[in-house]
């Protein structure tokens, strides 16, 4: 709708202001409060993250020392309990898992990987943990569990690694045809040349379906 004169317009503005001034002022107040609130939140969040970051650096420094595994565990527990919202909890879990594997504590390492899979907000760490868990399962002769973990969907960049591992599982199960298929697919995805993957393919040789039955004579891992 149009206003006929400027006075009328002015009138309209005044009226609007009379009716809404409280609201506008409240709005500005809330806006200003949110800015300060947000900044306060950010500062607190930064402090929280820095604390986690420092704890993680400690875990990293002691990562090669198997004797310190108990101290390490305390830090990792704290990170997982209080700093789950930072990437440092998962990073530390991955590191302690390796340390546990070196110390022969395979079950505990599995728990760490499972923790990352369930709790990490960073997908790349989650998928990395899945692959590493499947490596442990394979070592534990739990080939079916390893395979079902590897059969889940992974982002593209993980596929080469997943397929090679699948090939390893099939190979250990004596299924040379599936192994070869997986290896060949893996090598077609890999950007850099992988000498060992090629050797795995060469070693199986160009077998056809009927020769698969005969491979039982080799000593298996």
């Amino acid at each position: 709708m149009d206003y006929e004169t400027e006075e009328q317009q002015l009138e309209a503005i005044k009226r609007w202001w009379k009716e809404n001034s409280n609201m506008v002022i409240t709005g500005i107040a809330i806006g200003v409060a949110s800015i300060f609130g947000w900044q306060y939140y950010q500062v607190e969040q930064a402090k929280h993250t820095e604390q986690a970051s420092i704890l993680y650096e400690q875990v990293l420094v002691n990562s090669a020392d198997t004797l310190k595994i108990n101290d390490q565990m305390a830090s990792v527990n704290q990170l997982e309990a209080e700093f789950k919202d930072t990437p440092y909890a998962s990073l530390s879990a991955l590191i302690i898992a390796k340390q546990q594997i070196t110390a022969g504590e395979i079950d505990k390492a599995q728990q760490q990987y499972r923790w990352v899979i369930e709790n990490a907000n960073q997908s790349e760490l989650k998928y990395l943990a899945k692959i590493r868990l499947s490596r442990l399962l394979l070592t534990n002769k739990q080939q079916d569990q390893a395979l079902s973990l590897l059969n889940e969907t992974y982002p593209e960049s993980f596929n080469g690694m997943v397929l090679e591992l699948k090939g390893d599982v099939f190979s250990i199960q004596g299924n040379k045809i599936e192994a070869r298929k997986a290896y060949l697919e893996a090598i077609s995805l890999s950007k850099s040349s992988s000498r060992w993957l090629q050797l795995k393919i060469d070693d199986i040789g160009n077998i056809s379906a009927d020769s698969n039955l005969e491979t039982g004579s080799e000593p298996s891992a």
Binding site: L91, L128, L138
Partner: peptide, 24 residues
């Protein structure tokens, strides 16, 4: 560097995979 250290220093290879490589 923190991410890179965590990823690379925690890398593992399973014994079964090593066995395959050893056999080759």
């Amino acid at each position: 560097q923190q991410l890179q250290d965590a990823v690379t220093r925690s890398s593992i290879i399973g014994q079964s995979e090593l066995n395959i490589l050893n056999q080759i």
